[in-house]
Simulated scan of single mutants.
Amino acid sequence: MISYNGNLTQNTDISIHQNRAFLYGDAVFETFKTLDGRVLFAEDHYFRLMASMRILRMEIPMHFTMEYMEKKVLELTDELNISASARARLTFFRKPGGFYLPTDNNAEFVITADTLPDAIYSFTDSEYEVDLFKDFYVTKQLLSTLKNTNKAVQITGSIYANENGLNNCLLLNDEKNVTEALNGNLFMVTGNKLVTPPVSDGCLNGIMRKQILALARKTEGLEVEERSVSPFELQKADELFITNVIKGIQPVTRYRKKEYANATASALLKKLNAQIRLGGLI
């Protein structure tokens, strides 16, 4: 069961050979975590989605409000009998027509959902090794910050990680600075400083990135910086961790020969779960 343009259905009848998301990657998406009948960080997801559609010159349906978006996501999870927590994905794609130049800027959407094993964000200190992916680079431009369906760098990077026994890879931009991981934003802790690459360096404008930055700025004794990160700095850091809305915070235990602690990551995750339980979403 899926939701197609707000209607629950088993089959969209979308013609793949005409679909612009399939032909050109002409689509944007949001991945949500739902919890106990709520879409977490719904406002941030909604405004990022709207901004992405405007940047790509898609026409936003007039009825597609934040309340409508939440309603349709939860309508699907209810229909699928997902009571605790779900991963839901909403994808907007332009209507068929044209080649690179569309003939219709109006957009349609599909929502899918499946059950998540953990309701709240859980912390794991199991081995998690990363390395740099240097075959391809992320460009320092606005399009790199969007959740669009052009993910060739992340796909080839994931294959590289799998072939080399890694849990993840870190991506570089065209100035050879570290931007993010394959599936989330990167944070580095050195002493009392928490550093993450700025969005202007080409990293995803992550929803969980925003939550962690807000929590960190309220943490006494922790200095927060958004600045470019050189690969050489990684081995000098005390902690590395990766964030996204599905996992929350994933500590990195090893990069090359360096092993990392996780005290800051653990403390921030506890604060994140406390905010969610209280309903005080950032």
Rank of each mutant, 00 (worst) to 15 (best):
N192S: 13
H45P: 03
I155T: 11
L74G: 01
K218T: 10
V39N: 01
I282D: 02
T65N: 07
E233P: 02
T12P: 05
L40M: 07
E43Y: 08
I155K: 07
I120W: 01
R48E: 04
V229M: 11
E175Y: 12
N105Q: 10
I207E: 00
Q18N: 13
E67L: 08
E127H: 15
T243V: 07
H17R: 14
R20Y: 06
M50N: 09
E175I: 10
P198L: 08
K258Y: 08
K151N: 12
L80K: 10
M58G: 05
L142W: 09
I242F: 02
A267W: 00
T139D: 14
M66I: 15
T124K: 12
R20V: 06
I60N: 05
D13N: 15
K176N: 15
I60C: 08
P231D: 09
F41Y: 11
E225H: 12
A181W: 01
I159A: 11
T149K: 03
A51N: 15
L74R: 00
V73L: 02
N148G: 10
Y137C: 12
S122N: 13
F232A: 15
A237Y: 01
K270P: 00
G97D: 08
A263C: 09
V130L: 06
L281K: 02
M188G: 01
K236Y: 14
E259G: 08
Y68L: 11
N167D: 13
N150L: 09
D131K: 07
L40R: 00
T149Q: 06
I246S: 04
D114V: 12
L49P: 01
G202N: 06
N19Q: 15
R57D: 13
N106R: 15
I207A: 01
V252L: 04
S122Q: 14
V199W: 03
N164Q: 12
H63R: 14
